[in-house]
Design a protein around this nucleic acid. Structure first.
Lengths: 345, 345
DNA sequence: AATCTCTATGCAAACGTTTGCACGGATATG
DNA sequence: CATATCCGTGCAAACGTTTGCATAGAGATT
């Protein structure tokens, strides 16, 4: 750790000119004469001069670091979103810093606490499932740090938001199940304070209502988490009850996959005995047998748009109190775990 | 963007003392008297003073940013590795910056080029599959920026390395297939300049040799990429040849899953007609039917160890030219896509 | 020869922080 | 009463960069 990078002063000393002249030469300042500029540029090139970004940021009172806070990065959903974000910032002067909240409000608050010690240009956050209080987000806003909420809504909290229309995604999926002949459709839902889960649940309920199918409490089961393992017990509960459903709409693909395997183990035929639709369209979902029907979300685009909005927010001059609110549409992807609709091909 | 954070000078002005005294008070300097310290601390607390990290880094000529360069973040492998890395740095003063090379040497080199414009404390990199020249890594070393190579070896390039014993992982897998009665074992391999692929290929070859099974060129097929789609064609080639194998060892789980589906489509029974073993043990692999047999890698631990080594490298005082070379062992996970060994339960 | 106008460059301050050194005042020692 | 010792604090430099202002020198105009 003794690296002594080439500075403007080194170049100035070598050329026997002042640091200001070097600085101006590198910026092609019109007042300088050609020979000076060239001499400086040549030496800077030769010595591989790199401006010290910290000195600059200190002077300008700015930062080129963007923080991205996600609950988890091993799920395809968030890693794809992060990729979208990255792809926008990679061609900008900004660098992204990834922070993982592990779906924990405490960790999320701690991350923001630590972030405030560092200079940060803006924050993109997909809130943890346990986040009910938004004080930490408000603090950022109070400090004039641009904030974008993505994927998961924080109801009652005003900010720029980039979301997915989970409600209609779920509605369409359930409506499809009904049209394909299912009448006893169960739903495996997730943590009840997540906007995404709630909107999907509401979409499920409204689709049933819309078709005059009674909503049965026993057919709405909450999984204790997002992973495959968390789908086993709810499915067993449903398929061993005395009111066995003929379809399961799961709040995500992992739970759907788990439901699939559990159903198979219990000798149910898919989709004849039990149809299954998931949510997310993870890359491997189409490789199961039968291939999983699911709801695709434009997650990469969502990441990109969030990043673009943040970028604009950071660089804009005028002060506006308007918050953007973008909602992406989903797409129903029908594969083998759901029955065909009569005359649908 | 007009935030004016509280500085040491603000506190000094308010308390009518010098900035140096404030600085010392906050550090509990023994020369200061109690009342001064307390007055400063109280006001700092009240005004929510946060030291400006850029000023500090500038003064100290250091940085608290670590760069992590991975080929891709949507694969479970790298996202888990990044999570391990993150979990080490989260409790340190360092922040990690994620950069994605998209498996491209050019992008990787560009990232390092851009990184050198920013102050960076150290770099963790899993090289892109197309990286054959290591000049960009050497440049980092020349600038005394600690570098750790993980997962993928750069043969002929000296650096700290944290790898997985791909060779014996593959050897064990193929040996298992042989013991379970397979004699015509094919291998779907990947990009030929990736150390991981090569070591797995070599493990495959040596396991066959070790059992006096001839190595057939036609049974070694290179997939054109890492995704599910890339596994279809190689499998079809194998299963439609006039020397159909009785087992496929795929270089990763995605290709294995794809081989599975393709084999099923072609009416092969798994594992009776064709056994399949993958590599990675992705979370969903056990949810296929039959569940995928595979080779598990301690990827999270690998991430953590890489991070620890980097941390040590950054903070160490003495200059040593020794490079660490850590190799993790894999574990064979036998599930349903491979036959049982006689008397093995 | 005195003044004016350019042109090219340097000076110094600023960003926020730390720290070696110096200094003023109080107390203790001779 | 003079000197030594100590305590608490401030000054100024340093990190690397930019930029408004000043200025030196040259040439042009009177």
């Amino acid at each position: 750790m003794k690296k002594t990078r080439v500075t403007i002063k080194d170049i100035a000393r070598e050329l026997k000119i002042s640091a200001s002249t070097v600085s101006r030469a590198l910026q092609d300042h019109p007042a300088l004469k050609k020979e000076t500029k060239e001499a400086v540029k040549t030496l800077a090139e030769k010595w591989n001069y790199q401006p010290n970004s910290m000195a600059l940021n200190l002077l300008r009172q700015t930062s080129t670091t963007i923080a991205v806070i996600v609950p988890d990065i091993t799920s395809h959903f968030f890693s794809a979103a992060v990729t979208g974000i990255q792809d926008i910032f990679v061609s900008s002067e900004y660098n992204i810093m990834i922070c993982i909240s592990n779906e924990s409000y405490e960790e999320e608050a701690l991350i923001i606490e630590n972030l405030s010690k560092v200079q940060i240009a803006g924050v993109l956050v997909a809130p943890a499932s346990t986040t009910l209080d938004f004080g930490h987000f408000r603090k950022l806003q109070k400090n004039d740090i641009p904030l974008i909420i993505f994927d998961r809504d924080c109801e009652g909290f005003e900010a720029h938001k980039v979301l997915v229309d989970d409600y209609s995604g779920a509605f369409e999926a359930v409506e499809y199940l009904i049209k394909s002949g299912c009448r006893k459709i169960a739903h495996i839902t997730g943590a009840s304070n997540l906007s995404t889960n709630n909107h999907r649940l509401q979409g499920y309920i409204d689709a049933l209502k819309n078709n005059n199918i009674p909503i049965l409490e026993e057919h709405i089961i909450q999984a204790s988490g997002f992973t495959h393992e968390d789908g086993i017990q709810p499915t067993e509960l449903l398929l061993r009850s005395n009111n066995i459903p003929d379809a399961i709409f799961a709040v995500n693909d992992r739970l759907a996959v788990s439901a699939m395997r559990t159903a198979k183990k219990l000798k149910f035929r898919i989709p004849e005995d039990i149809a299954i639709i998931g949510f997310d369209d993870e890359p491997h979902s189409s490789y199961f047998t039968p291939a999983l029907s699911t709801v695709w979300q434009p997650v990469y685009s969502m990441g990109m748009l969030s990043a673009r909005i943040l970028l604009h927010e950071i660089e804009k001059e005028e002060e506006s109190k308007e918050f953007r609110h973008e909602v992406f549409k989903t797409e129903l992807v029908i594969r083998g775990t759901s029955k065909r609709i009569q005359g649908d091909f």
